[in-house]
Nucleic acid binder design. Structure first.
Length: 176
DNA sequence: ACGATGATGAAC
DNA sequence: TTCATCATCGTA
């Protein structure tokens, strides 16, 4: 089976926007019910720091957001609109609240559809992105030319004042 | 264009 | 304890 280099904590501990951009082209790998599937990441959003009004962390440290303040490389999974699980990976330094929302992979557009397809639920919240938890990220050598990366404002955060229109959404245009 | 559907956080 | 608010999606 073709595998790649599993991304370690070092990768995620860097500045959130950089991590977001570099996650494009990486592979989200899911092992569930004895089967392993890999999905190339094509769409992400950065949620960066206490001042980011679009981030849950802007309303302080709470039971839900605790994981965002924790160590990088952990999953932050929460329920949105009462029915969709959202999958994020914690980024940046310890105690600094930040994460990247994985919005889409090749063939599966939309964060809610993505978690449904991969069988991701609250059970993965606060777990590490390692093989042991059944959900991790690999570099399989896909090259992502700068030209193929689109930046846009984030989706569904119109309430976030000036943060609503910052280009913190990254899309890998594969042309396919 | 709109309703489903429930956790979350802030107000009371 | 109540209430408004959602980092969405399928159907119309």
């Amino acid at each position: 089976m073709l595998t790649g280099q599993v991304l370690s904590v070092d990768f995620f501990e860097r500045p959130t926007r950089r991590v977001a951009r570099e996650l494009l082209g990486k592979h989200l790998v899911r092992r569930l019910h004895g089967k392993t599937n890999a999905y190339m990441i094509t769409e992400v959003e950065a949620y960066d720091g206490y001042n980011d009004l679009a981030s849950h962390a802007s309303r302080g440290r709470t039971a839900r957001t605790e994981v965002m303040f924790g160590k990088a490389g952990h999953w932050y999974v929460y329920l949105c609109y009462g029915m969709h699980w959202m999958l994020n990976i914690v980024t940046g330094p310890h105690e600094y609240p930040a994460a990247v929302l994985i919005r889409g992979v090749k063939g599966v557009g939309g964060p809610g559809r993505l978690t449904k397809t991969l069988g991701v639920t609250k059970a993965l919240n606060a777990r590490t992105a390692t093989r042991g938890t059944g959900l991790w990220i690999e570099d399989r050598g896909v090259r992502v030319p700068k030209r193929s990366i689109m930046r846009t404002p984030r989706v569904g955060v119109s309430y976030a004042k000036e943060w609503a229109h910052k280009p913190m959404r990254y899309v890998f245009d594969t042309g396919a």
